[in-house]
Design a protein around this nucleic acid. Structure first.
Lengths: 200, 200
DNA sequence: ACCTGAACACCGTTCAAGT
DNA sequence: ACCTGAACACCGTTCAAGT
């Protein structure tokens, strides 16, 4: 958003660093991400990153923020109302979440690791909150349609998102005991929705 | 279990390394865990660990196995039948899980990170399976008592454990938007149990 | 303002050598 | 069998210096 000042030797080093870091993350995991290697790749000295990020952790945090922004965009698209019932809509949202996590496992891992640091910057927590604002919205509309019990949507949706996220953590290689994640997600959401029916 | 051969310079270096590593993990997180520092602490040369662990990752894997064994012990104790109903028992099991994770956050994180590596050793996956065998047992007894719908206990319990684990991942510093994890766990389990009631 | 090069204090891993 | 010491190829970070 901020207009970049005239470049010196490199076009926009900060941006280039973040992009190269994201690539490194996808290719070789967080272990392969070093400031010196990024600098080499971009043809600048290994001390250049210092001008744009206080230290390595600052770059990782910025990368985590980008991740939550991407996740936010993915969730926003999946949360759009298409006239389905609550179950179908929540399942679509959950699948989008799982899809992002499986497509960018190292990035996804970095995002939550960064968020869990005691001194995580506010901008990071805000980015996370942004992405996690979509499920409550879907729940609220489910309530409006009489498909979901009354109660704080944020609190109700937390259980659903926790289940989906936990499924990712507990599973291995996109499956659990041979059953693909996608199927398990649908199963769990359906059972959850059943439990969330208004009690007559 | 295996009888240790006569020591050379150190009593039982393998054991000492694992204990020192666990301590380092608790104190300064996984970032503070280096083979050289462990060696210094134990008064051996920095190449000694090589005799007992092929590389650093092998030590981390062994540490992760220990973690799952500890978790298994904690879960086994919590899963014991005390004559409560299914809801109370599952809540106790979930709280034990959360308690372990909050008490040893770095270790807990290491365990699942190790488990997610593509080349995770079978012994690690077995240790994980061991700890996760307790919830299905509780579910099976819940079914026997007519408190839970029919279905594969492993599959049914997966949703519950995923929700609890996910809550840990999504939350920050043992809470979520100011609400303590313990309370959220109880809430989610209760709602889940409600959804798992046999449908008449 | 932005980048460089040398220097410092660390790593993990390898390997020939010791007892 | 078990450990050592030197060596190698890396790190992140600091700092005086350049344009």
């Amino acid at each position: 958003m901020k207009a970049s000042p005239r470049p010196y030797h490199h076009g926009n080093l900060r941006e280039a660093l973040l992009e190269a870091a994201a690539r490194a993350l996808e290719t070789g995991g967080v272990g392969s991400l070093t400031l010196r290697e990024l600098s080499r790749e971009l043809g600048v000295s290994h001390t250049s990153p210092r001008r744009h990020f206080a230290d390595k952790q600052a770059l990782l945090d910025a990368l985590a923020v980008r991740g939550f922004e991407r996740l936010d965009a993915v969730m926003a698209r999946a949360a759009k109302d298409r006239g389905e019932d609550f179950n179908a809509r929540l399942t679509r949202l959950a699948r989008a979440y799982v899809g992002f996590a499986l497509k960018h496992p190292a990035w996804f891992g970095l995002m939550f690791e960064a968020k869990h640091r005691a001194d995580a910057p506010p901008v990071l927590l805000d980015a996370s909150d942004g992405a996690f604002a979509h499920p409550p919205a879907v729940f609220a509309q489910g309530q409006a349609a009489g498909e979901v019990v009354v109660g704080d949507p944020a609190r109700l949706s937390l259980g659903a998102m926790a289940a989906v996220h936990g499924l990712l953590s507990i599973s291995t290689n996109g499956q659990f005991k041979g059953i693909p994640l996608d199927r398990l997600v649908a199963e769990i959401i359906e059972r959850l929705v059943w439990g969330l029916r208004p009690r007559e």
